[in-house]
Each structure stands twice: as structure tokens, then as C-alpha cells.
Nucleic acid binder design. Structure first.
Length: 724
RNA sequence: AGCGGGAUGGGAUAGCCAGGAGAUUCCGGCGGGCUCAUAACCCGCAGAUCGGUGGUUCAAAUCCACCUCCCGCUACCA
């Protein structure tokens, strides 16, 4: 690659993060696919050769677990999702030049080849670790395939994480009393050889890589921190039978499969390769992009040449991803590429998250706008593309609500852009049958050139928002221009001047079509047709914005329709109902009170700040007997001292009458520790023991809220008195 | 708590990396204009000490330090 301004001499590739073949697509996904799609289209428009590739991520434990639970073959399971994605993307005009999947032959072969190179280069080593094993099925139990007891807190936990207890990450082999989630049988531990990729040896390379990396700030700053903290080597194999077999006879016999994050990013390369093979290397050469265009590089050449030299030669690799997978794209992936002798990415653009009505998107709570649902509503894809790409900067979190959506669509697309095009072209058609036969005025030509320049700058800064707002800004100018010149009066007073103004408007319309193509491809094509232009706007270069449109064209039609308030309310109500019903399925009538109120009032007051930051009262009532299970006692703090190395934790000796307990509490920064002794407190005496920072905590001291306001007694109840 | 990302007129956003004109645009409010156009469009007004405090500088929204609050990740939330 280069760090030269686009367009460069090298071919470019834009990739979007692979969708995981395990669930429906929603607007969170769509945000990065539409952004990357727009970026790719814009690159092409400014004359940069560029391809847009992606594919479905088929492997990994979740697919294995879910398909197994449904009793279907994992390949079949994942392929079904893959096919759905493949059908859905074009409906949003997300046009991949190639869309493959990680289980196809190209990716499988390429992955094995790359892993072999990593081995040959000496960056892979074996290490024996203990893994859980189901003796009956004679199968290893990675990650979520095993449950058991957390060795730290005694809670029920998953193989890789104590998810309901202390939250600790668990290394393979740590969990006690392991049980197979497949059969429910007790699992045993077996020693297994696994492969590790020596990421830690490449810290210097990564630092250098990050210095040149373009894209969003977060993709550059986060990994710097991880490097400073020290990089861990990366276990790249799993005991699974779903995935790409680890190359080599011995490993294959062992049933070792590559960790899903090894083969997933390689799909970027594989997908580019498939595209290249389909159109021919003369048209698009994947090796020129990913290798260095010098006819392939052997591993030894790769490590020999300086990174700079290899960069100059290769293509412009641009990754668009979600913020949650920065680590994979800025640590693991570039080190793999480097060792395997491939080119480094030029840019990593990490998008922010999306909230719905101000709350976090949650697929399990059904708080999401699903891709299919949006289409079923009959809404034009360009509307959502526009909203998602122009609402804020790429790395900003953005909020979605139907109200905001309608607001932007109506104000910017309908009133500004749509209305300018319609009034201008209608005027032109009625009075001149098309484009008046005069040249463009200098003012308008200058303004269009300025717009093209801004567009070009936006592309160079990966500023998708700027790409999307460029046509709207130009339309805004158009409205101001036509208003200022009043051609409807000039038609009678000064026909030549009128013709000039309308000529300018027609040119602006054409420029808008060209500028709108990346974000509003469907609507841009419609403008193109209204102008009776030949060919497709998708193939038009940016410079076409200044070429004269055809002399005659038909009566234009309105490009966009307003989204009326009723429609917004309807969409909003549907969303609210759906979230509501999902919630009630889950937790019965936990939200009964508010649900009833909402049903009557519509959705206006549903979520808005009516309730301050207080947590709602838990609606599920417990019985008196259940309450009795809590053994609450009055206690008196005898001593308190900070725990070394912990910021908040204090070790307390508490007299609870029958005995003295050691209890660890998070009070250090909220209380004067020296003043704690002799304070009376309320203790949960029968809470199970926990270990924090190596200290046993035998019970829990009650305190209210963030400030840890300690609960105490009002009169003189003695330690040990039961609270009821 | 550590680390990232934020904080800009009533709401939402741009500008910050490469410091200097009246701080951008959208929604909303007020007043006016136009009538070609989808009650659309245009003009004007009100409204921001650019989260706070210091510092660097001739000059700070922009750079530096510290702090406060929000959002994520991680977590010592027993």
C-alpha cells in the first residue's frame, strides 16, 4: 500500500466484518455494511480501482453448539444463514464484488497454506494444556461445551468464564466438577497439545504498523494500550470437529481445528481471490493487492524485505469493522499477515454502536430493527442507508428511533434534495423540454467543483458521513440559487436569464446524482434516468458531474415520499409491542404495570425520561418463607484495613455475636477506613463464601447505592441480633 | 478502578489530527418573503462564556495537565 492520496495507482479492496452465521441481520450489522459499501462506491467514483468483498463466518463454537442442539449438521445450519445473508444484502444495495464463506474451498486452502507458512517461519509452538473431555462421546469439550463449579467462588460456571458467579475468565482445566453440556456426563481432564501463535514476538512490528495505520482513532489507540500491557501468545486451535482442520497429518488425526478467528479474516483474502479468478487477473489482481504484485512472494522474501518496501508495492486494504473486533483486526490479523508474507492493511475503520430509542440494542430482548422487518415495511433501502451513514461520524455511537429517522428523511431527503430536483427538472421539462441550450454559469460550475473537491476529501478521510451529505449540501445550494434568481418571473421578463438559471439547475441535478450514488445508489439511478442519461450512474466517474446532460427528458416524478406522523407512530408502536411481548415471554409479567399504561397512551411516554435513574422495583414478589432464608444479623466492625493492591476493597473483622467474621467489602474510597471500627452494620450471614484478592469474604455488609451508604441500627441492638 | 470514545445554542450534529475571520448544518421557536416545487423553498432574528480549572501561545472549541459527568470494554460490583 501507500499512504498517498486516493486515487492511487494500486488496486484497493474494501472489506466489511464477516457476519456470523448464527442469527438474523439487524441495523447494527447494516451500519458497517452500508458504510463500507458507500466507501467502496465513492472510491470507484474518484477513479480508484476498488473491490468490495466479504463472506459469512461459518465456524466456531456457537454454530457448533446451536446446530447440535437443533440436531442438524453445522455446515447445513451455517449455510442456511449464509444464504439468507446473500439474499438480503442486495436488497439494501450492499453490492459485494464477491461474497463467499469461510467454509468454502478457497478459504480452506488459503487458510491452511497461511498456517503452514506461520509454522515454517517458526512462529508456531506447541504447548500442553488440560482440556475437558466427555469420556462417553470421546470428545473434547471446548469453551461452552463444559459447565461446572468455579474454583474461585463456587458458583455454577461455564468452561471459559464464571458467568453467573465471580465473572472470572477461566483457563482450560480450571473448572471443578466439570460436566459435559452434550450428555450431562461428568467430564474428565485430558492433557492435549495445542498450537500457539507467537504474537508476543511481534510487538515491535505492531507498533510500527499502528504508526502508519489510517482509519478511525479508536482502531489505532486501543491496540497501543494492549501492546504496552504486554501481548499474550494466542491459542489458535480447538478440539472441535467443526472448522478448518489444522494442517499436518498428526494434527488432523488429533482432530484439531483452527480457532475461528484464524480463518475468519483470511476470508477477506479468499473472497478477493475468488473475485479475481472470476473477472480475470487482468481486470483485478488479488495478488497485487494482498501480496506485492511482483509475482508472489515466498515466505523468506517476505521476512527479508522491509515493511516499507512491501507496502509501496501492494494494494490499499481497507477494513470496515465493528468496534468490538478491533483487537482481532489490529493485533492478530496484521501479525498473521506479516509473518505469512502478505501486505498490511492501510486502514481499519471501526464503527460505533447503535442504540434504539436511547437504549442498547439487544437481540435477545428483541430491541432491534431487523433488516427483514425494515424491508417488509416497504421502506426504501436508501433511506436507511442515508440515516445510518450520515447520522454521526463513523466511530460515533448513534441512536435510532423512527421519529429521528422520519425527521432526517423528511427534512433532508424529501424537502431539500427531492424537492430541489423535482422543482428544477419539472421547470426545465415544462419550459424547455429538457436542458436549455446554454452553457453552465461560472458560479454554478465553481460550486459543483467545490462539491467534488469536498467529496474527494471525504473519501480520503474515510468520512462516510461527508460522502453522504455532499449531495444534500449541493441541493441546499440549488434551492437557494433557484430562489434567489426566480426563474418563474424571468421566464417572462428575461427569457435568456431564465434559461441560464434552469440550465444551471439541470447541471446541479446531474452533479447530485453522481454525488449521491455511494449512499443513495437506487435514488441516484432514478435521477440519472429522469435526466435521460445513457448507461448507469454506477459507472459514472465523479467528473461526469460537469458534463452536459441530454437536451431533452421526460416529466420528472417525485423521488421521495414523506414519512407521515401516523406512519411513525405505527412503526414505533410495533417496535414497542415487540419488545414488550419478548420481555413478557421471558419474565412473565415483570413489566405489567407500565405495559398496561403504554397500551392506552400509545408510545409517546413509553421510554422517555419519566423515570429518573432509579432502578425499577422488581415486580416478582417473593414469599415470606423465601425472605426468611436470608440470615441477616446486626454486626459490629472490630477492625478495618485496606487490602493491598486493591483500590476499593477493605478487609473487615465483624463481630456478629455468635462469632467474628472476616468480610471483604468495597468501601475503601467511600469511607474513612480508620473510622469504620465500632460502626454497627447489617450483615448477610448465610451468604456463600467468596475469595477476593486472595482474601476470604465470609458474608456481606449491606450498603446503599453507589456511595456505599452503610446500613446501621438506630437504637442499641446487640451484635448477633437477627434482622427481620 | 484501569483503558478507549464522548461532552459544542432547547434537541441532534460538524469543526479538533495540520491553533487564527462573524463556530457548521439539521430539527424546534419568532418574524418576513416567494409561489416554479411534495404546506415544499428562501431570507432574517433570538439562542452557545465550545463540560470545569489551570497552562502553552500574539492567538485555543482546537495543543498540554488535572478534574467532573455520560457510553463502551475490562473488572476488585459479595
Amino acid at each position: 500500500m501507500s499512504n498517498d492520496e486516493y486515487p492511487t495507482e494500486n488496486p484497493a479492496v474494501v472489506t466489511a466484518g464477516l457476519p456470523y452465521a448464527n442469527g438474523d441481520l439487524h441495523i447494527g450489522h447494516l451500519r458497517s455494511y452500508t458504510a463500507a459499501d458507500a466507501l467502496n462506491r465513492a472510491l470507484n467514483a474518484i477513479g480508484q480501482q476498488s473491490a468490495y468483498v466479504c463472506g459469512s463466518d461459518m465456524h466456531g463454537t456457537p454454530v457448533a453448539v446451536n446446530s447440535w442442539q437443533q440436531g442438524v449438521d453445522p455446515e447445513e445450519f451455517a449455510l442456511e444463514w449464509h444464504e439468507q445473508y446473500e439474499e438480503t444484502f442486495p436488497k439494501f444495495d450492499v453490492e459485494f464484488d464477491n461474497y463467499g464463506h469461510t467454509h468454502d474451498e478457497t478459504n480452506t486452502e488459503l487458510t491452511r497454506e497461511i498456517v503452514c507458512t506461520l509454522e515454517d517461519e517458526g512462529y508456531i509452538y506447541e504447548k500442553t494444556i488440560e482440556v475437558a473431555w466427555d469420556p462417553e462421546e470421546d470428545q473434547a469439550l471446548p469453551d461452552r461445551y463444559v459447565e461446572g463449579t468455579c474454583p474461585y467462588c463456587g458458583e455454577q460456571a461455564r468452561g471459559d468464564e464464571c458467568d453467573e458467579g465471580c465473572g472470572r475468565h477461566l483457563e482450560p482445566g480450571e473448572i471443578e466438577d466439570p460436566v459435559s453440556t452434550l450428555t450431562g456426563n461428568p467430564a474428565e481432564y485430558r492433557k492435549r497439545e495445542h498450537k500457539f501463535f507467537e504474537v508476543s514476538a511481534l510487538a515491535d512490528y505492531l507498533t510500527e504498523f499502528l504508526d502508519d495505520l489510517e482509519g478511525t482513532d479508536n482502531a489505532q489507540n486501543q491496540p497501543r494500550q494492549w501492546i504496552e500491557e504486554g501481548l499474550q501468545d494466542w491459542c489458535i486451535t480447538r478440539d472441535l470437529d467443526w472448522g478448518i482442520d489444522y494442517p499436518g497429518d498428526e494434527a488432523e488425526a488429533d482432530n484439531l481445528v483452527l480457532y475461528v478467528w484464524v480463518d475468519a479474516p483470511i476470508e477477506y483474502v479468499a473472497s478477493t481471490k475468488q473475485y479475481s479468478e472470476r473477472v480475470g487477473a487482468n481486470t483485478y489482481d488479488w495478488e497485487a493487492v494482498w501480496k506485492d504484485g511482483q509475482g508472489g512472494v515466498s515466505a523468506s522474501d517476505a521476512s527479508g524485505g522491509s515493511p516499507d518496501e512491501r507496502r509501496e508495492a501492494g494494494g490499499e486494504i481497507i477494513h470496515v469493522i465493528g468496534r468490538d473486533i478491533i483487537q482481532h483486526h489490529t493485533i492478530f490479523w496484521p501479525t498473521m499477515l506479516q509473518v505469512a508474507g502478505y501486505n498490511a492493511p492501510r486502514a481499519v475503520c471501526a464503527t460505533g454502536f447503535i442504540t434504539i430509542n436511547g437504549k442498547g440494542l439487544s437481540t435477545s430482548r428483541n430491541r432491534a430493527i431487523w433488516a427483514r422487518e425494515y424491508l417488509d415495511e416497504g421502506l426504501h433501502p436508501d433511506l436507511l442507508r442515508y440515516y445510518l451513514t450520515t447520522n454521526g461520524g463513523l466511530q460515533q455511537d448513534i441512536d435510532f428511533s423512527w421519529e429521528k429517522f422520519a425527521d432526517r428523511v423528511n427534512g433532508e431527503l424529501v424537502d431539500t434534495l427531492g424537492n430541489f430536483l423535482y422543482r428544477g427538472l419539472l421547470f426545465a421539462h415544462r419550459n424547455y423540454g429538457g436542458r436549455p441550450d446554454v452553457g453552465v454559469s461560472e458560479e454554478v460550475e465553481d460550486r459543483i467543483e467545490e462539491a467534488l473537491e469536498e467529496f474527494n476529501e471525504a473519501v480520503n478521510e474515510y468520512d462516510v458521513r461527508g460522502i453522504g451529505t455532499a449531495p444534500v449540501d449541493l441541493a441546499r445550494f440549488g434551492n437557494e440559487y433557484i430562489q434567489r434568481n426566480e426563474p418563474w418571473n424571468l421566464v417572462n421578463d428575461d427569457p435568456d436569464a431564465a434559461a441560464q438559471v434552469i440550465r444551471d439547475c439541470v447541471q446541479l441535478a446531474k452533479a447530485i446524482a453522481v454525488l449521491a450514488e455511494p449512499v443513495l445508489p437506487g435514488k441516484a439511478e432514478a435521477i440519472w434516468e429522469q435526466l435521460a442519461e445513457d448507461g448507469s450512474v454506477h459507472d459514472a466517474a465523479l467528473s461526469a458531474a460537469l458534463d452536459a446532460p441530454p437536451e431533452s427528458f421526460d416529466e420528472p416524478t417525485e423521488l421521495f415520499a414523506k414519512i407521515e406522523d401516523d406512519r411513525v407512530n405505527e412503526l414505533d408502536a410495533k417496535l414497542a409491542d415487540r419488545i414488550e411481548s419478548t420481555a413478557s415471554d421471558d419474565e412473565e409479567d415483570a413489566n405489567e404495570g407500565t405495559a398496561a399504561a403504554d397500551a392506552d397512551e400509545g408510545t409517546d411516554t413509553a421510554d422517555d425520561g419519566a423515570v429518573p435513574d432509579m432502578e425499577p422495583i422488581v415486580e416478582d414478589r417473593i414469599s415470606f418463607e423465601e425472605f426468611q432464608e436470608l440470615d441477616l444479623r446486626v454486626g459490629r466492625i472490630l477492625s478495618a484495613e485496606p487490602i493491598e493492591g486493591a483500590d476499593e476493597l477493605v478487609r473487615l473483622e465483624v463481630d456478629i455475636g455468635v462469632e467474628t467474621r472476616q468480610i471483604v467489602a468495597g468501601l475503601q474510597q467511600l469511607h474513612d477506613v480508620d473510622a469504620l471500627p465500632d460502626t454497627k452494620v447489617i450483615v448477610v450471614a448465610n451468604l456463600e463464601k467468596a475469595e477476593l484478592f486472595g482474601e476470604e469474604s465470609n458474608g456481606m455488609v449491606l450498603a446503599a447505592g453507589e456511595q456505599a451508604d452503610l446500613l446501621t441500627t438506630h437504637e442499641d441492638a446487640v451484635p448477633g441480633t437477627r434482622v427481620r
